[in-house]
Design a binder for these strands. Structure first.
Lengths: 224, 224
DNA sequence: TCACTAATGCGACAACTGTTGCGTTAAGAT
DNA sequence: ATCTTAACGCAACAGTTGTCGCATTAGTGA
């Protein structure tokens, strides 16, 4: 997760996001509906920033947005639905991985961003992960978000191949996961105290392993 | 996580596990208290197996255990406390990593166990991870459990060093995390559809990286 | 301008969650 | 055998969560 801050909240709000929040553009995407959605999503972010995930209840969001409880329940179902919508709005940015000139440098830069996202205050990213364990909808939104982010990261591997650092048949996704997973593992699951040194290690090891051909396979989509 | 099934539920039950479930051995560890604890913990496991984490409520556990709601609330506080106690009871087993004769084999065997735990039905392990995001107490218990497991796994690295497979100054913990984290990452956070092939990959890459000296550092406790 | 209707507001409601005070039971000690 | 008291059972309670039917508002199109 790199920049979950949504710069431009999508003004179109489907009335029934239960199935898919993006399928139909809504039968009435006009003024009030869009305004309510903007107010509610802003309220979610503000509430999250000011009081954390524990106090992110539907009631609190509705009150802060100046909207009735039932409206929020009907359109977003629960807190997970709210966060899923926030997350989808955040996925529409133009983020790209940094280009440092070397594979290890690129991976380290990625991990630095992951580190910042996971240890940042307010802990928005951690809150989203936590929410994904409470709501299937939030889980799907998070999966979509990460899928998109890792897709964008594959250029890091392609650049390294072009520079001759690693074999052409390197499984990009596997390499990227091997590089970032240890950081998530320690910060999210182990909850080790934050230490900026964590970020560089895995990047180094992954780059070395890639050089040694540990991720040989289909260059586009490795063995899952 | 490898074998969360508690073979022998600790009969000693501290009355106030709020602060630390193991500090004082309780002033009255006798028959009834221990019996209630055993009933409740068994009810937690049964409820989890039969109805999953979503229906694991304090009320359901109390009813199934034949115990009053208030008793559960007072001794375990919430569902997280219940799972933390279950988890602590599970950590007292005699699990050891398999010895296959090679580093990559040992790591692959580890990942096979992780895979089985994360994809097993009922999803006890996943439920515990989910609970750790709702309850600080469950989170601490999970950290303790994993810390203990990874400690026991370090012998895998020491054996590899003894066989001359990897440098003596290999950071055992870093290697182990690099080996297992990708699997957790994909199954727990990404929620990719289960695929037994996932388990072997990371083990292979980690073993290769270790051989190349990617985890050079303090052999006992690597750079965090 | 006017009718249509999707979306929202409103209040009531049941279900669930967690707490408190007090009486009862039974483990541990003398 | 008897006493002490930690732990439990019980009932009542307030607060929260989520749902429902119906009234009202405000985009949308004629």
């Amino acid at each position: 997760m790199s920049s979950p801050t949504p710069a431009s909240p999508n003004p179109a709000a489907p009335p029934q996001p239960g199935a898919d929040a993006h399928a139909a553009a809504g039968r009435r995407p006009g003024g009030r509906t869009a305004r309510v959605r903007a107010q509610v999503l802003a309220a979610v972010r503000d509430q999250l920033v000011e009081h954390g995930f524990d106090e992110l209840t539907v009631d609190a969001v509705a009150a802060r947005a100046g909207v009735h409880r039932t409206t929020v329940y009907r359109r977003w179902r629960d807190v997970g639905g709210l966060l899923a919508d926030v997350l989808d709005a955040a996925g529409g940015d133009d983020w790209r991985p940094a280009d440092t000139g070397s594979l290890e440098g690129d991976l380290a830069a990625l991990n630095d961003e992951v580190y910042a996202a996971l240890t940042g205050d307010p802990p928005i990213t951690t809150a989203l992960i936590a929410a994904s364990f409470r709501s299937e909808e939030a889980a799907r939104a998070l999966t979509r978000f990460w899928e998109d982010r890792y897709d964008r990261c594959e250029i890091v591997v392609r650049r390294a191949v072009r520079r001759g650092e690693i074999p052409a048949a390197t499984a990009a996704r596997s390499l990227l996961i091997a590089s970032t997973a240890p950081l998530y593992h320690q910060l999210v699951l182990f909850r080790v105290p934050p230490d900026p040194g964590l970020a560089g290690q895995a990047a180094h090891a992954a780059a070395l392993a890639a050089t040694a051909g540990a991720f040989a396979g289909n260059p586009a989509s490795g063995p899952t």
